[in-house]
Design a protein around this nucleic acid. Sequence first.
DNA 1: TATGAATGAGGGTTCATTCAT
DNA 2: AATGAATGAACCCTCATTCAT
Lengths: 203, 203, 203, 203
Amino acid sequence: MTKEAKFARTKKEKLIFDAALKIIKEKGFHQARMSDIAKEAGISYGLVYHYFKNKEDLFETILNQWWGGLFDILEGLRNSRTDVREKLGKIVQYYLGTYHRYPELVTIFITEISRSSTNLTPERLKKFMKLMSRTDAVMTEGQKGGLLRKDVKPRYLTYIFLGALETFISAMVLVDQSLTKDSQVGRLADAILDVFMNGAKSG
Amino acid sequence: MTKEAKFARTKKEKLIFDAALKIIKEKGFHQARMSDIAKEAGISYGLVYHYFKNKEDLFETILNQWWGGLFDILEGLRNSRTDVREKLGKIVQYYLGTYHRYPELVTIFITEISRSSTNLTPERLKKFMKLMSRTDAVMTEGQKGGLLRKDVKPRYLTYIFLGALETFISAMVLVDQSLTKDSQVGRLADAILDVFMNGAKSG
Amino acid sequence: MTKEAKFARTKKEKLIFDAALKIIKEKGFHQARMSDIAKEAGISYGLVYHYFKNKEDLFETILNQWWGGLFDILEGLRNSRTDVREKLGKIVQYYLGTYHRYPELVTIFITEISRSSTNLTPERLKKFMKLMSRTDAVMTEGQKGGLLRKDVKPRYLTYIFLGALETFISAMVLVDQSLTKDSQVGRLADAILDVFMNGAKSG
Amino acid sequence: MTKEAKFARTKKEKLIFDAALKIIKEKGFHQARMSDIAKEAGISYGLVYHYFKNKEDLFETILNQWWGGLFDILEGLRNSRTDVREKLGKIVQYYLGTYHRYPELVTIFITEISRSSTNLTPERLKKFMKLMSRTDAVMTEGQKGGLLRKDVKPRYLTYIFLGALETFISAMVLVDQSLTKDSQVGRLADAILDVFMNGAKSG
DNA sequence: TATGAATGAGGGTTCATTCAT
DNA sequence: AATGAATGAACCCTCATTCAT
């Protein structure tokens, strides 16, 4: 089952979805105009409202696309026996992998949600907090298992880990770098993880 | 010379500046209304235009306040002989110290600029790139001096370092945590730096 | 010949008609949406256009249903030899009787047409004027026959008579009162007529 | 204190108020467009929103103008010792007098409120019910004092009285009749009252 | 300096109507 | 007959900016 199957019941819906993705990435949530999206999708203005209740609904659909996949991953980590590094690797892979196929989706998440408190409805904050606490759990588990240092709060490790990961991606966005090969994705994931685990220090 | 002196030629100007800071933090750049800012400042909205050319000008002034201080620090690092860790510490201190005194300013920078490509005018992108390359230089220097690992591109180290730092702060913003004591600032700075340098791994 | 037969050539047509009646009563002419009507009728909204040219046509059909019956009555009064009170009684009975069977139809007539100049197309005004002049004729006849006072213009008597009648009904609508028994209708008709003829004064 | 003083704090407000009155009379509440009102008032679109929060607020202001005066009258009747006929006369005079000076205001009340259940918000229904019960009280008092017949419910008398009055006026509106002389107002009032009290019957 | 009235270009949303299937 | 996707003209409301006082 592809990711698209989750939301795109019709071809037009997918068309609008992708157009919205592009426009929001360019202009941000608030600046994205419905008319821009319609034009980008090559359809009439009113048709957007045929498929989505309103702007908010369209945006929520987009975000849920991201959150859905992410929570699937996080859920999978809960009962998994793999070690911390591998678990964090799964998270990195979700970010990078999704960026590989849906660059705009990841960009929107990072720039419009992960940071901007402006767009944080209570509903969104709740999801965000869930991401944090799930990652915390991985960190705590790592500390208990003796793999992660105990002198730093798990929440702080979460901040640093996710921050490194997200900024990495958003910086790539700025210079419009795309991940065209799967090997690239793997190497980047390793770099991020390795620096997080072993530090930037040499030796 | 105080930071205020750089821009606040008059008391009213400072009043507007601070009001804008607060409103932009709450609502974001685009959502911040001039009338909100005027109301917050306790003046008529016509007067804002007496002191600032327009919305853009007001926002640019605010951002320059941040950039000015940051570039002062980065400039100071160029010819300094201190080691890498200390140099990065200076950057961390600028972020945290400014957050201590001007929480909104740092928040705005991180949420509205550092990530959001939406607000990136060419002018702003230039400044952003300068921050990147200056930090790159520190990393490169660290690699040459044998202090930083050489198997990761300096630019990548920059991403990870700044990302960890910025997300740390923006996450604190979300939970509305403030840094009331200088000792807190120091400890946080150490934690961030230590994890960046030595990694999250125990032992 | 039933009233329905006048317009409802098909079952679907009747379905739409009744749905429109209900929706218009609830929301008024302009606020009634074609989609509401279709949904109420349980059909697709495209089909409404198969049976009625457009919104205006549908509404006109509804109003003609009312006017048709009313003019039948009024026509019957022209050459009738019955006295004034009985003639006015026939009018009252048409209003109350139709309200009994088609509450919405009467409501719509009173609220959307009888009063509101908003919805008055020249066509409708013409019909309205016809009602007035026909009632005038009854009043004039009553004056000539010595049954009605001559010191008040027939037109004024018409205003007062129809006004009392219509407000009576529209007020009942407000409190959602329905006429479930024929005896009720008769009593109400008597009350209205009696007050109109003999006045509210005691004795 | 003039009626205008109650609402029109500024000249522009009055300008908008009068323009709205005219447009609403012509098109009805829902069909009245803010742009029409602005154009009619000879001002820019946005200025309407400077003086009135929104369409609803503007319309409410207009209706309160009517209700305010009417309730003043009704309140005055409560403790008054004058007889029923005179009390009802006061009500008639308020309607006709206001129509004399503000034809649109009365028209709007009758066509858009008194009848149309479409526009009846709970707030408005409350006011409407107050009018009814206050008039009921006058009728009841008349019955107790032996002046009005007791075989008809007070509420029914209210319906007939107000209905006659309102239809009288709305019919005048239809034929665009205006009351230019005060003497006309008095004579009409007498006619309505006399028919209501003594009936249409001759002798 | 200071005020807030005034302007008008947008942008979100609704809904009657058409039309391909 | 029947469906509902598709269109686009309206219409409400916001808000940056200007300007007379």
